[in-house]
Amino acid sequence: MSDLTVVMYHYVRPIAKSKYPSIKGLEFDLFKEQVKFIKNNYNPVTIDEVYESFYNGHKLPPHAALMTFDDAYSDHFKYAYPVLKEHGMQGCFYAPAKTIVEKEVLDVNKIHFILASCDNVSELISNTKVLFDLFRDGHEVKEFEEYFSELAVANRFDTKEVIFIKRLLQVALPEEMRKNICRALFNTHVETTEEEFCDELYMSQEQLSQMASDGMHIGSHGYNHYWWNKLDSETLNNEIDKSIAFLKAIGAHTENWTACYPYGSSSQEVTDILRGKGCKLAFTTAVDVAKTDVNDPLLIPRLDTNDLPKEATAKTNQWFR
């Protein structure tokens, strides 16, 4: 049996000094400390070693750790990649292809930066209701207050009000309606054009190709960053096929390819389709340390960066197994 600690990262940047100091992410200085903590207490492994452990019984070293980075942010190329190279560690980067191919900011990222640009969440909810009423014609939707009652449930990182905004605009409303609301809120609260923001926020195809050729692992995070478990079979198949084509285009490995579920959106149908298309490893947002002789290789749990200490000399915590 081999235990595997997979760590999940999103924004990694000098946040306090940035234009969006309230964006939820990891300060770059703390990332450097956490990498040292992992080097001091864990044994970093590669995606190939993880594959061999799941499929061929290869025993991983004690306290094996793998670093994963979601959404192909330019942060990862500018800040995370050089640190990983310095420490001889491999990172696994999961890119939603549309952001790079079509230069379109994902709604999930629009929501992050809308929230980061607003001091008053209650006022944002009121503005969202105005737009909800404006764009609801032609759509079968519930009343705004019903959505709040159903969706406003706090989690370990966000208040119920923030969760409500995220869930309403990420998945609960019809796609056209939520895109219109996101676009209007983004144009109001984020002072830049979408194309300029996209170039600033995400990696380029050339940067991903450079990392792939330099020993980093690039995997699928879908094309549109949809909730995979909300898609019909035809749309899901198209979503995965387009993401695989993107991996080929940047020179990433497409034999024994890997995936990361957008929003952790796995299901039996999703894993069956991934398996049928040759996906060998897939990462969820379930919080746990993986066991390579127990977990389904297409349902690998991960820890969030906030689950591990961010000081090089810190003591280990309950996740050190």
Score class of each variant (00 low, 15 high):
L169S: 10
F93Q: 00
S126F: 12
S117G: 10
K19C: 07
L303H: 08
K242G: 01
N238R: 15
V12W: 05
K32E: 14
D288S: 14
Q268A: 15
I15H: 02
H225L: 12
T285H: 09
S243R: 02
I181A: 03
D137C: 09
D29A: 13
E143G: 12
P21C: 04
N56Q: 13
A80H: 00
R321Y: 15
C182V: 01
I38T: 06
V108D: 11
E206Y: 06
S213Q: 14
N155F: 10
D29E: 15
Y73I: 00
K85H: 05
T235K: 14
A259K: 00
Y55A: 08
K98V: 11
Q170V: 00
I38R: 00
K160T: 08
G276E: 10
T235P: 01
L124Q: 06
D70H: 02
T159D: 10
T128R: 09
A172S: 15
M1P: 14
H139I: 06
V50P: 05
H58G: 02
L208R: 00
K39R: 15
I250G: 05
D107M: 06
L124K: 07
L124T: 07
L231T: 05
S22P: 04
A95N: 13
K59I: 14
E175N: 14
L236H: 09
L231I: 08
C92E: 04
I125N: 00
N238S: 15
D158I: 03
L303Y: 08
E176D: 14
V45R: 06
N224C: 08
K129S: 06
E255I: 14
H63C: 09
K142I: 01
M89N: 03
K129V: 01
S53E: 10
C118W: 03
R136Y: 06
G91V: 04
Y263F: 15
L298W: 03
N238C: 12
E196V: 08
R302G: 06
R178D: 08
